[in-house]
């Protein structure tokens, strides 16, 4: 299982702040595609991802047990 965390408009869009994705190993980009295809979560293009609380690249590998957060452009301060 890969835990996916959603924030801000992404959370509102799908009505959940967390999704469990059944996958063993894939890249961040493949996960993005899977969320779009199988979970109807569109609009992740250009949204930054963090794997286990560190910013990640599209080709960063994600494994079973990891937490992936999609980080829309931030607006704190």
């Amino acid at each position: 299982m890969i835990k996916v965390l959603l924030f801000a408009h992404l959370k509102d869009l799908i009505g959940k702040d967390e999704i469990e994705v059944n996958a063993d190993e894939l890249t961040v980009e493949q996960l993005r595609q899977k969320l779009s295809d199988e979970y109807g979560l569109h609009g992740l293009e250009g949204v930054m991802a963090a794997v286990n609380e560190e910013f990640a690249d599209p080709d960063t590998m994600v494994s079973n047990g990891d937490t992936v957060a999609f980080i829309p452009p931030v607006s704190g301060g």
Binding site: A8, H9, L13, P72, P73, V74, S75, G76
Partner: peptide, 28 residues
Amino acid sequence: VPIWKKEHWEDGEKWIGNQLETVSYPTG
């Protein structure tokens, strides 16, 4: 820093998409 603000106005609400307050993504 992963912090986001949602502006609430008299005529609606919107997640602000970046700190220049020039971009927002109400529908993703």
